[in-house]
């Protein structure tokens, strides 16, 4: 065995990373540093501006465990009312999601770049959808309650408007992903607009529409639980009422029910999402 150690002076076997990449890495680290520095300074400034009552912070924090103890045990006796409002929350969510899915289903074909009949309609609908989802659900709810009075109707409409904004966007985005050649082939075969949509586009976007609708149901249910707090029906109304009357045992029961409801739906939608991803082989 012999190894000639003086033979070669460190040839580099692999190419060096490019200068651009090196530069990128270093600027990334610098950004990280700047963001950290800026947030610390701004944090101190913000804290000063908010001017908290620190005595209250301490006494309040001490009170919290006491309150938690006071909440126990949960009061199950109102279970019929609570169950009814759970049902109402679910009904509101179902109605709102369904409404938004149906309307968005129709409108999205008018505002996907590859199927929109006119430019004007494309921009109008897209802009409208952006506005609808930019305004928070609770702001919609509060406006609708002011216009229509208390009850589930303003809640459903508020939810439906907000989710319509999202569904129009995601539906038309999935339509835009449809292979352009399929549409061209159909057009060449003399298909009309409606035929093209029904026979060419719909079969391709069906599954993605379904999964978006399911995802949105999950989101809508989360919102629906709190809509009641501004008077728009559902379980949130029960909670705010019991808190205002300081009936802590009732409140704990309602929070527990809320948690169970949201947790179950989240688990379910995770399960469905996983199955859909597997089915699509993504």
């Amino acid at each position: 065995m012999s190894v000639d150690l003086a033979k070669k002076e460190m040839p580099i076997g692999q190419p060096e990373p490019s200068g651009v990449e090196q530069h990128r890495n270093r600027t990334n680290d610098r950004y990280l540093l700047w963001i950290a520095l800026f947030s610390i300074i701004f944090f101190i400034f913000a804290l000063q501006q908010l001017d908290f009552d620190y005595g209250r912070l301490i006494s309040g924090t001490r009170e919290l465990p006491l309150m938690a103890v006071k909440m126990f045990p949960p009061n199950f006796s109102e279970w019929e009312d609570v169950l009814r409002s759970v049902a109402e929350t679910f009904q509101m969510t179902w109605a709102a999601t369904l409404l938004s899915v149906v309307v968005a289903f129709v409108l999205s074909f008018f505002c996907a770049a590859n199927t929109a009949p006119s430019r004007w309609m494309f921009w109008f609908l897209r802009g409208f959808a952006a506005l609808m989802r930019a305004i928070p659900v609770l702001v919609w709810a509060i406006i609708f309650v002011a216009a229509l009075g208390l009850g589930p109707l303003p809640g459903v409409l508020a939810l439906a408007i907000h989710s319509l904004g999202m569904m129009i966007k995601v539906f038309s985005d999935s339509i835009e992903e449809v292979d352009q050649r399929v549409l061209e082939a159909m057009r060449a075969a003399g298909a009309g607009w409606l035929q093209m949509i029904v026979r060419g586009v719909l079969p391709l976007v069906y599954t993605s529409f379904m999964s978006w609708a399911l995802l949105r149901f999950d989101i809508d249910l989360r919102y629906a639980t709190v809509l009641g707090m501004v008077g728009a029906g559902g379980i949130g109304w029960q909670l705010i009422r019991s808190m205002h009357m300081y009936e802590l045992h009732d409140a704990l029961f309602i929070v527990m029910v809320m948690f169970a409801m949201l947790y179950t739906v989240e688990m379910m939608s995770n399960f469905i999402k996983k199955r859909m991803i597997n089915a699509n082989g993504l």
Partner: peptide
């Protein structure tokens, strides 16, 4: 003083 991921495999 370079970052380790900027070097080649041998380095």
């Amino acid at each position: 003083h370079k970052r380790a991921d900027e070097l080649s495999g041998g380095q």
